[in-house]
Computed example of a mutant assay.
Amino acid sequence: MTLTAEQIRAARAMLRMEQTQLAERADVSVETIKRLEGAQGPLKAQYETLKNIRTACEFAGVEFTDDAERPGVRLAEDRTAAFVEAMTEQFAVSFKACLETTVRRNPSLVEGPKKQLIKAVLEDVAAILKHTLPNRLPGKN
């Protein structure tokens, strides 16, 4: 995933979002946002940091164009649909990781009674809803 300093600045401007708001939603420090926005061109940073920033902007209604020659951003035509799409993608990634870990720890869940598998799945979903998604959702706690 490539993200440029210009894309972050443009996305934030389109959303009328302060650096502090983006930092909070992306779960990174304000200093990180300032440092990245102060750069030029493709950013060199931890993958997770860039992903968190991009996801926070997508949740807020910005779409990134991934054209390597002409990277850009635009407001989503339907911000609700953009939010739902970003949220669904985030949840799917988190759920897959949780489920994979659960099944690897206890392979008998796949072969055992459905009730045990359903219970494990529900516990994974509860963990995602409790711990992962609140940090990604827009708005105040």
Rank of each mutant, 00 (worst) to 15 (best):
K115S: 01
T55I: 06
D27L: 06
T88R: 12
T32Y: 08
A60E: 13
Q116I: 07
L133T: 03
R79S: 13
G139R: 03
N135H: 07
N135P: 04
E111Q: 03
F83I: 09
E77F: 05
T102E: 07
E63Y: 03
D66E: 15
E85F: 11
P113Q: 15
A68N: 09
E58K: 14
F59T: 02
M14C: 13
T102S: 13
P71K: 05
K115Y: 01
A39S: 15
A56T: 02
H131G: 12
E89A: 05
M1T: 10
M17E: 08
P107Q: 02
K51E: 14
V121H: 00
L99Q: 02
R16I: 10
G38Y: 12
E69I: 11
F59K: 01
L137M: 07
T55D: 07
L137E: 06
V62R: 09
C57A: 05
E77G: 14
Q46D: 09
C98Y: 12
V103Q: 04
T102F: 01
E111Y: 07
G139K: 03
F64M: 13
R16T: 14
H131C: 10
N52G: 15
L50M: 02
D124N: 04
L137R: 01
T55M: 06
R79L: 08
D27K: 08
A127R: 03
A127E: 11
A76Q: 10
A97C: 04
E69Y: 06
F59P: 06
K119A: 13
C98G: 09
V62S: 07
V73T: 10
Q19C: 07
L22V: 06
M17D: 05
Q40W: 03
L75F: 03
T20Y: 11
A26N: 13
A60F: 05
E89M: 08
T32V: 14
A11H: 04
V84E: 12
R104V: 09
E18R: 15
E24Y: 00
R12Y: 14
A92G: 03
A45C: 05
L3D: 07
E6L: 01
M17A: 10
P138M: 06
L99S: 04
V93R: 02
R25Y: 10
N52A: 15
K96D: 12
R136V: 11
T55L: 08
E48H: 00
T55E: 08
A126Y: 14
A56K: 02
T65C: 07
N135W: 00
Q90S: 15
E69V: 10
R12H: 11
E69N: 06
L122W: 01
Q7E: 12
P134T: 03
T55K: 02
E58S: 10
T20V: 15
G38V: 08
N52R: 01
K34E: 13
S94V: 10
N141L: 13
Q40L: 09
P107K: 01
K130A: 02
S94D: 15
D27T: 15
L99K: 01
T132I: 05
A10S: 14
Q21C: 08
V73W: 14
T132W: 00
E100A: 08
G112M: 14
L133S: 04
T101G: 04
A82D: 10
Q116A: 11
G61W: 01
I128W: 02
D67A: 05
P134Y: 04
T32A: 11
E24M: 05
E37Q: 06
A45H: 07
N135Q: 03
M1Q: 09
V73N: 07
